[in-house]
Design a protein around this nucleic acid. Structure first.
Lengths: 225, 225
DNA sequence: CCAAAAGTGTTCCGTCTACACCCATGG
DNA sequence: CCATGGGTGTAGACGGAACACTTTTGG
């Protein structure tokens, strides 16, 4: 049995996480400058190695927790990158994951601690190794799925206004959306609940706050925007 | 630098390939009974380890070539499976790929040589380890993409009738499609060319043979069925 | 001559899109 | 009182879904 595995080399397996946030009507991601070789000083995603006693998914959640201090965040596997020389040092195969978080939940002290910062997607610098490809894939995934899965709420606080929600869609899809058509569609989705609460921060008149009702969604998990 | 990688264990990385074919209006896949431990005798996908000097994608193509003797087949990465104990022997992380081939191109002598056979998707047995999950993911991927990417042609010969093409869609989507609506949509796609050739094998009257024009598609790669 | 598959249009209905004005309030 | 963002409805275009009969020919 061991003979069956012989003659094949092992590899390091890592996870790299594309963490998306949303602020000022812009899609942003967490990037840092590498503090270690190889690639010291280059812009890069946050990542880590898969340990011997954890699954790849678990590793991704552990690393995301390290980075954000948050658990149970929305995260999906994006793609696995396995070019021979993608890491200049050793053979490292990396599984990219995409996470969505509400920037407001993020403890800003952690930014410095991990040497990362929020960078607007539109102003993304060139990244280390194949990390730019990882981001590209993650965005493609987001765009494909945002209309068929209730992703968007993960980028917002529990309570949000319809204008905020619309801005999320506009930022992800990169195009403007008609306000009245958007709100019409939202009204037809019954697990997006209007609350009695009103947000007076962003407008003088005040805007109704809405909430994503997970239970109601779980009962009939279909989504079409 | 080497110190940076220390304290982390390496893992075997493998590829497993879900090979879809289409015959008798049915979607089928290539499955074999494992000839080796662990899991000897269980139904399983065909796979192999990623070598030290090849990328993961290259490994997938190499393994697919081993299995089919064919190159340049349509293949996409599906998902990476990394549960700690997914392989009872060693830590093996596996990247699943999905390939589409025309059964007619497949050399049937290879079936026995590799101990595999075409199994109807609807009659798929329980598979080794997490291979059933791999198949499930691959199908989800197929269904999502068949309407937005020109996949379907990869399951058919170069020349095909519209009825055959419709059967591919019906098999993948698992539902019947209205013939007139289907043909109307096909007519509006200009890179599906009608040839002067006629297929007299499946019907007495004869059916026009069509062809997917890759060049025309490459010029304007948009697809919507 | 009949069974078996190929081929062909129209109508209806629901959905998406375009589009402009009034409201409430803080400063 | 006015600037700012919140909130609302309708008409017309478009695309998808339903639906049945004629044609050809091998056996």
């Amino acid at each position: 049995m061991t003979e069956f595995y012989s003659g094949v080399q092992k590899a390091f397996v890592s996870v790299d996480i594309i963490v998306f946030g949303f602020e000022d009507s812009k899609l942003k991601l967490l990037l840092g400058k590498r503090r270690m070789d190889p690639g010291r000083g280059e812009w890069s995603l946050y990542g880590g190695f898969v340990g011997a006693e954890e699954s790849v998914d678990e590793a991704a959640h552990r690393v995301l927790f390290e980075l954000t201090g948050l658990r149970d965040l929305y995260m999906k596997q994006v793609h696995t990158f396995g070019a021979v020389d993608r890491d200049p040092g050793e053979r490292v195969i990396s599984v990219a994951y995409c996470a969505l978080i509400n920037v407001k939940d993020y403890d800003h002290r952690l930014l410095e601690e991990h040497g990362v910062q929020w960078v607007e997607l539109d102003k993304m610098p060139q990244l280390y190794s194949d990390h730019s490809d990882m981001v590209k894939r993650a965005i493609t995934l987001l765009r494909r799925r945002i209309n068929t899965e209730p992703l968007s709420f993960n980028l917002l606080p529990d309570l949000f206004t319809l204008t905020q929600l619309q801005h999320v869609y506009e930022a992800v899809l990169g195009e403007e959306i008609d306000k009245r058509n958007f709100r019409k569609r939202i009204k037809s989705i019954d697990f997006i609940e209007k609350t009695e609460l009103i947000d007076k921060l962003t407008s003088k008149r005040g805007a109704a706050l809405y909430r994503f009702n997970k239970r109601m969604y779980a009962e009939d998990p279909s989504f079409k925007l």
